[in-house]
Design a protein around this nucleic acid. Structure first.
Length: 107
DNA sequence: GCAATGACGCTCT
DNA sequence: CAGAGCGCCATTG
């Protein structure tokens, strides 16, 4: 017991992300910790990359520890994330960073 | 099985 | 405070 396969880990990660309230954000590392996978922040990124577009998972509420939108292959996806967050009332500062002290979700 | 990769993060400069 | 360096570890070829 204890060993988990990829899809089980991914489902666990998705369920944690679904707990993030609208208008708040969480970091990759934070989600990994909540999913019981400390030190697996990168796996959260893999899980989000594998996410289909029609899932109900609020993927846009996950940002990196610097409060910035992480770079990826498709820049359009980065822009989309910013738009979605701004629509929820999140205001980026002049360095394109989200003030985590103000917006980070604290369960 | 091994090497490269990456939607990460912490430390040091 | 921004950027480089390094550690981390599942995933990919």
């Amino acid at each position: 017991m204890g060993m988990q396969n990829r899809s089980e880990d991914y489902d666990l990660i998705y369920s944690m992300i679904m707990l993030i309230p609208k208008g708040r954000v969480a970091t990759y590392g934070q989600i990994a910790d909540l999913a019981g996978l400390p030190g697996h922040a990168r796996q959260v990124g893999y899980a989000l990359r594998a996410l289909p577009s029609d899932s109900g998972v609020p993927w846009h509420r996950v940002v990196n520890a610097s409060g910035r939108i992480s770079r990826r292959f498709d820049p359009v996806s980065e822009e989309e994330q910013r738009i979605l967050l701004e629509l929820e009332g999140i205001v980026f500062n002049r360095n394109n960073k989200i003030p985590l002290e103000e917006y980070q979700w604290k369960p």
